[in-house]
């Protein structure tokens, strides 16, 4: 009895594990890492978040006018730099800009994310810009 149970377990596990090796199409999403564009987008988000936070801190009276102005200028300059970089990559810098680019994104078949409006590559399940399910 024990032997039968064990044999069944081994066969099931083996089948489950080895199945992907013999599939025609490779299963699951590909193994791409972060692209330059992803990184920039992320820095953009972080920068905007910091900017928002800065403003809130100022409103709370944690910063003096002069400090605030200076820091805000720094943040804005950084945001501008990031946007320029994104522009250079030909990728959407702001939310409304369209098109994929050499950054590896194939987009541009007209699909758009319903949440943020960014272009989405065909066949993708999630928006590359905001992460919403398409």
């Amino acid at each position: 009895m024990l032997w039968i149970v064990c044999a069944v377990a081994v066969v099931t596990a083996g089948g489950f594990v080895l199945a992907p090796l013999f599939r025609e199409t490779a299963p699951g999403p590909d193994l791409e890492g972060e692209t330059e564009r992803d990184r920039l987008l992320e820095r953009k988000t972080a920068c905007y978040r910091n900017l928002k936070d800065l403003e809130f801190q100022f409103r709370m009276g944690r910063l003096l006018e002069a400090d605030y102005e200076g820091l805000r200028a720094e943040h804005r300059a950084e945001a501008a730099r990031i946007l320029a970089e994104l522009e250079r990559l030909g990728a959407p810098g702001g939310k409304r800009a369209a098109g994929g680019g050499p950054g590896g994104k194939k987009g541009g078949d007209g699909t758009r994310c319903p949440a943020c409006g960014a272009a989405a590559a065909p066949g993708k399940k999630f928006c590359a810009d905001c992460g919403k399910r398409l």
Binding site: F16, V17, P20, L21, A26, D30, L31
Partner: peptide, 12 residues
Amino acid sequence: NRRRIVSSGERA
């Protein structure tokens, strides 16, 4: 960089 093998590993 083989997706099949990675997928098999995850299942294992």
